[in-house]
């Protein structure tokens, strides 16, 4: 009887252990699959021509597989989104955390989480029909589907993560810091920007890194507004990101072209792992 019970408890324990390890298994599965399927093409093409080649002509007779345009586009696009999105998100968070009346804060926070919930294809759709023609008219370019359009869409899409994480960080700033500053004769606004914000800096850095992660990984919305041609990046050029390079050719690719797409995914994955490491670094800094 007792042995039976013990056996049963052990069984339950192992079942839960297995369930817990599923997560780890998934990560391993993804990593291994990406490496196994990503390496062959890099081997065939050569690491340097692959990473630093400036032309991607996967369907040409003498196909060339250089993904520098995609890498640069992803970096420029993400940087642009950060340059536009971070100041807006950051200032909004200071407003929400420090000066907004309670009711307004509630409403704006609801609106921000709504923004987080809107599917990326809806951003893409609205971008296609509002932003792309808008850019064409304002800047007098032939086609508005460009890096700029993608940057604007990405900047809007990363706002919620930036705002939520920064607000949490700013809320956690001890009141004593702010009181000390006020007692020295600083005004509330001066206090928020010169004491509260520096005190919350690691949280805000985390928010920025999260935003980078979201921007670099976004595929569908970008695909719908960026024009999707493998050019070297320029603000009004039609461009392809790492993500959209994978998505746009996957359905009809085969052979080396298909393998090269897996290699692109591997490069994207490495970028994401790098960002994760940065995130971990900032979170650790916050705890200390």
């Amino acid at each position: 009887m007792k042995d039976e019970k013990n056996f049963f408890e052990k069984l339950v324990h192992s079942i839960f252990l297995i369930l817990g390890l599923v997560t780890v298994g998934c990560v391993l599965l993804i990593t291994i699959y990406l490496i196994i399927s990503g390496i062959p093409a890099i081997k065939k093409i050569g690491l340097v021509p692959f990473l630093f080649g400036k032309t991607w002509e996967s369907t040409a007779e003498h196909a060339s597989y250089g993904i520098l345009p995609f890498i640069l586009t992803s970096i420029y696009g993400t940087a642009g989104a950060i340059v536009i999105g971070v100041p807006i998100g950051f200032l909004t968070s200071v407003y929400l955390s420090k000066t907004a009346p309670k009711r307004i804060r509630g409403i704006v926070e609801a609106v921000v989480s709504l923004l987080a919930g809107i599917p990326s294809v809806v951003f893409g759709l609205v971008g296609m029909l509002v932003l792309v023609p808008g850019i064409r008219k304002i800047f007098h370019v032939a086609d508005g589907a460009s890096l700029l359009a993608a940057i604007v869409v990405l900047a809007i899409m990363i706002l919620p993560s930036i705002i939520k994480v920064s607000v949490t960080a700013l809320d956690a700033v001890p009141e004593e810091y702010e009181n000390a500053s006020l007692a020295l004769g600083a005004t509330p606004i001066e206090t928020y920007f010169r004491v509260s914000v520096p005190a919350a800096k690691s949280g805000i850095a985390t928010a920025v890194v999260l935003g980078i992660g979201r921007a670099i990984g976004e595929a569908m919305a970008v695909m719908m507004v960026s024009g999707n041609v493998a050019n070297m990046p320029g603000l009004f050029q039609s461009v392809r990101f790492l993500t959209t390079a994978v998505a746009s050719e996957m359905s009809y690719s085969s052979g080396l072209q298909r393998q090269a797409l897996f290699s692109i995914a591997l490069v994207l994955f490495l970028f994401i792992m790098l960002i994760n490491a940065a995130l971990k670094f900032f979170l650790k800094g916050k705890k200390e």
């Binding site: 990984g217 976004e218 993500t243 995914a265 994760n276």
Partner: peptide, 8 residues
């Protein structure tokens, strides 16, 4: 897992 982009 939560940081991996959906395209991957």
């Amino acid at each position: 897992l939560s940081g991996i982009p959906s395209i991957i």
